[in-house]
Design a protein around this nucleic acid. Structure first.
Length: 155
DNA sequence: GCCAACGTTGGC
DNA sequence: GCCAACGTTGGC
């Protein structure tokens, strides 16, 4: 099993939105970065645990945990001319972009803020806090995942 | 709203 | 294949 972190702008889709879904599942569409695409398509497996992070938000924080319930499959929005994520170069026979389905697992008692992550020596090496990182899907080490979950359970 | 960091595009 | 210009991300 692997561990991941996904970013979302809560204005667009928040952790509360995921929690509020009838089946608490959503497809993770709109990723248009090749490296993130490779993670979605090739490496994220059913049952993998995922931290849900709010970017461009207040607070900037990991809100809780979700998990992969469906592995990489073509992102239909690349072919939808009305979609913001439409990609004129995408070929239906050989899709460029992929998505996964994730399901709500648990909301943290307290969101783990970016500042707390930055000030925790155990999390210094997280890709999330690496310089210039802009990927919306990132691998997380088990130790880092466990540490953040621990922080999220504290009052 | 600013700007650093980075990815992508396109002219050559 | 290089690299300048441009667009996007995301923290501040």
């Amino acid at each position: 099993m692997k561990y991941w972190l996904v970013k979302s702008e809560p204005e667009v889709f928040s952790f509360e939105d995921l929690k509020g879904r009838k089946d608490q599942i959503t497809f993770w569409d709109g990723v248009r970065n090749y490296q993130a695409r490779n993670y979605l398509r090739d490496e994220m497996k059913k049952g993998d645990q995922v931290l849900f992070y709010h970017s461009n938000a207040d607070p900037l924080a990991v809100m809780g945990i979700c998990k992969v319930v469906k592995e990489g499959y073509p992102d239909h929005t690349q072919f939808d001319i009305d979609s913001y994520h439409y990609d004129i170069k995408a070929d239906p026979k050989n899709p460029t972009w992929f998505m996964i389905d994730i399901k709500f697992v648990k909301e943290f008692k307290t969101p783990v803020t970016l500042q707390e992550i930055k000030s925790n020596p155990k999390l210094k090496k997280m890709q999330l806090v690496a310089r210039g990182n802009r990927l919306s899907v990132l691998p997380v080490k088990k130790e880092e995942f466990d540490e953040i979950v621990k922080m999220g359970q504290q009052k």
